[in-house]
Design a protein around this nucleic acid. Structure first.
Lengths: 227, 227
DNA sequence: AAGATGCTTCGGTTACGGTCGAAGTATGAA
DNA sequence: TTCATACTTCGACCGTAACCGAAGCATCTT
């Protein structure tokens, strides 16, 4: 009837509860098999298979065959960013499944959001960067300052490599549990990777929670003091 | 089942063709009546009414009673931004309704995107700003420079008032016809308003097209020379 | 008051899409 | 080869939601 992007098509893809559950599970950032996703969505594998092929066809998911397994991930950073966006919008309108209360305290404290840190700790980290002038915030847009570049360099993060991709270095992402922004983008990704690699924290097996070790937590809190 | 934002709910709202048509029509930025939206969606008023109440309930639309009319608009800039986001994503995956060809040349040349200028002219404007250093682009994030601030001041745009709202001043928005970014945010809005107020262009009655006058076009092109 | 216009609500129909059981395909293990 | 695992395809069922006609409100006009 009209020309233009087919928003109904992708809206429909996000609009089914089973598919939404799968996508939420994939926000953990790691590749999951069809069976795992079926379990996450609470449907049988046949149903999940049907959903997964639709999501792949729609360009939201990508699959990687490995032996007799098929690992599914979000197609790219753009798909993850859109998902984050929708989550933030839904949260801002109060559209939460079940209560917004502290169901799983660990999740509210620190969790993975596709490939970066979210939750209380994620928000605190961004706040801290902004407070000390390492990142400048203009309402929504974030940019790294020279001071920030230097600080991250001493922390052992290869800042130069972050700017190589076309994905933005700093990006704000609305946190649905805190209702404030945390840090996404390649820098957000690199920081989370840094915490995990240096043993400050590890990922939970069952959920998207990020579990800090006592020592890692001490380091994190001293590096990012509360405002 | 799980906690978190209810992305399925808002996905479903965007996922129906009739609703998507209405939302696309509202991307024109002006308030429309239920009857007009029904026509845009190609359904009867009863059906449209049902859709509209769902969209309002979901926080995507807001309505304003005026006499026996009810004017509907996008609820706020966040709703418009999300819609743009989805449009950009859909376009990036090639999900276009009908062909991507030049169906309506005027639309591809210049059109309204919620409240700012899109299409060839919108892309050209942003490119030009970036080329002359009035706006700095960091992949996705855009920031106005001091030079830009000065230039816009002499153009007769009240730069100070742009920064007052919580909405970002400069924001990039993926253009589905050009597949490149144009300028959104309060600055994008102010610039479009400036063009319309000063008679450089006027809005088409039937579509989202922006029609430049010969004189306005000359001014626009000299102000934003092609790269 | 009576009529007209704009919109919503109600009721009933219809069609599409989500669902699962059963069967089919592919890969790996024994 | 034979069996087991992981996943897809097929077919049938069923529920939901989109849809419209008719009736009901609300507001403005005359």
């Amino acid at each position: 009837m009209k020309e233009g992007p087919d928003i109904a098509r992708i809206g429909m893809l996000f609009g089914d509860p089973a598919r939404a559950n799968m996508l939420t599970a994939l926000m953990g950032g790691q590749a999951l098999t069809a069976t795992e996703l079926a379990q996450a969505a609470g449907v049988t594998v046949q149903t999940a298979s049907s959903h997964l092929s639709k999501l792949e066809e729609g360009g939201i998911l990508a699959q990687r065959k490995q032996g007799r397994h098929r690992y599914f991930t979000l197609a790219d950073a753009a798909a993850g960013a859109l998902l984050e966006n929708i989550m933030g919008f839904a949260a801002s309108r109060g559209h939460l499944r079940h209560r917004p209360g502290p169901k799983d305290p660990a999740l509210r404290k620190a969790r993975v959001c596709y490939d970066h840190l979210a939750g209380d700790y994620g928000v605190r980290m961004l706040d801290s960067f902004v407070a000390r002038g390492a990142i400048e915030s203009d309402g929504e847009n974030l940019t790294m300052t020279e001071d920030g570049r230097a600080e991250l360099g001493t922390l052992g993060i290869d800042v130069a490599s972050l700017t190589s991709s076309r994905r933005p270095v700093c990006k704000s992402c609305l946190d649905w549990s805190e209702r404030r922004s945390h840090l996404a983008g390649t820098l957000g990704k690199a920081l989370l990777a840094h915490f995990l690699e240096n043993g400050w924290a590890r990922r939970s097996d069952e959920s998207r929670a990020v579990l800090f070790t006592p020592d890692g937590e001490r380091k994190f809190l001293s590096l990012f003091p509360a405002g």
